[in-house]
């Protein structure tokens, strides 16, 4: 889980407010034809958001993890090979970098930077349980909350089961190394108990849910409260409107 339990003002916002903010920044970065200059302003705004939200150090680590490989591939591939390349910038031992490709790489990286930092501002400050509660509440359906929450609860025990199955089959002489053909044939004995076992067990689980009133319609009570406010509701409306109108203005200009 990426959530960081370190209360800041972003943590206090309703999950939907942060999601709409993410949507708006994605729309601005990709759909309004911003110049490099305006993109840097937008990026700076995202940075401000992250710093003021108290999640700068974790976000920086994540950004490096995501962007290092992207930069390593993006800059040389577009700088050298982008089909639009015509203007030489510099050459190094006969390898020529071009302006158009580098410009394209820079712009793409900045657009991604906006979207990813806005996403991080959401995931680092939103507890999955709060998101699930908000979604269930808004949709009036408990199923969607179950679909989002149950996998998180089950993940650890399923991971342990993978290890147990591997142990059980190795104890019966299954080799998990060797040549690639052999390793492919070992896939069945490792996957089948996991997949078939879990699917066969579904019947039991669904009965367990139904006897506890899972499918009953009507309002459900929740132990978790996700605070919202009129100001947030209004700003969500505003941001949504902007996210639709600004791209349209750009396209029809």
């Amino acid at each position: 889980m990426l959530f960081i339990d370190r209360p800041g003002w972003l943590h206090k916002l309703h999950p939907f407010t942060k999601l709409v903010l993410l949507l708006l920044s994605a729309a601005l970065a990709y759909l309004t034809g911003l110049s490099i200059g305006s993109l840097s302003l937008l990026l700076a705004a995202c940075l401000l958001l992250i710093i003021s939200g108290g999640i700068f150090s974790v976000s920086a680590k994540m950004v490096i993890r995501i962007f290092l490989p992207l930069i390593l591939f993006m800059v040389p591939i577009h700088g050298l090979l982008n089909p639009a390349n015509t203007t030489e910038i510099f050459s190094f031992h006969g390898i020529v970098f071009y302006r158009e490709g580098l410009f394209f790489a820079l712009k793409t990286l900045m657009q991604l930077g906006v979207v990813i930092s806005a996403s991080l501002a959401f995931v680092f400050t939103t507890h999955p349980a709060d998101l699930i509660t908000a979604v269930s509440h808004a949709s009036g359906s408990i199923s969607i909350g179950y679909l989002l929450g149950f996998p998180l609860l089950l993940l650890e025990s399923m991971r342990e089961r993978v290890v147990t199955i591997q142990n059980a089959q190795r104890a019966r002489g299954l080799e998990i190394d060797g040549n690639i053909f052999r390793r492919f044939t070992s896939l069945g004995p490792l996957l089948f108990p996991l997949l078939i076992g879990s699917i066969v067990g579904i019947e039991q689980r669904s009965i367990a849910l139904e006897v506890r009133g899972f499918k009953i319609h009507g309002p459900k009570t929740s132990l978790r409260l996700v605070p919202d406010s009129l100001l947030q509701k209004l700003s969500r409306r505003l941001m949504l409107t902007l996210a639709v109108i600004l791209p349209m203005l750009h396209f029809f200009r």
Binding site: Y146, L147, V162, L195, S206, F214
Partner: peptide, 17 residues
């Protein structure tokens, strides 16, 4: 309910294979 549980299980399967 069976389908919903199936989907939830399948999500975990996707994440563990």
């Amino acid at each position: 309910t069976t389908t919903i549980v199936l989907i939830a299980i399948a999500i975990v399967i996707n994440m563990t294979v």
